[in-house]
């Protein structure tokens, strides 16, 4: 069977790339993608470690709920990015620095 520590290394890589995208990218959509990567890293760990316990399914059930939350986050996030783009005509979070109307 697949060695669990290899899966752990893979999910650590997913998490690191997600954090890298959160920290460096100057585009709201890419930051959203980084968030999805981080959630997927957690999901991979949940499912991989669930394989140790053949009769308990808490990890896989938790992974289902994580996926549901990720969909909610993506839907609301894309809507907010669209509205901010209409309002400020930019998708670069650095340029959205105030809540009132741009002068």
């Amino acid at each position: 069977m697949i060695a669990t520590h290899h899966i752990f290394i893979l999910s650590a890589l997913l998490l690191s790339v997600g954090v890298f995208m959160l920290l460096t990218k100057r585009n709201a959509i890419l930051i959203l993608m980084g968030l999805e990567l981080i959630l997927n890293a957690a999901n991979l760990n949940l499912i991989a470690f669930n394989q140790r316990y053949a009769d308990a399914l808490a990890g896989e059930a938790m992974a289902v709920f994580v996926i549901v939350l990720a969909v909610c986050e993506a839907a609301v996030g894309v809507a907010i990015i669209l509205q901010a783009y209409r309002h400020y005509a930019t998708a670069v979070p650095d340029q959205i620095s105030e809540l009132k109307d741009p002068a």
Partner: peptide, 14 residues
């Protein structure tokens, strides 16, 4: 954190 999982092998739940 990784060394804690070196001994873990997945069994696969049927």
């Amino acid at each position: 954190v990784g060394p804690a999982f070196l001994s873990v092998t997945s069994t696969g739940s049927p």
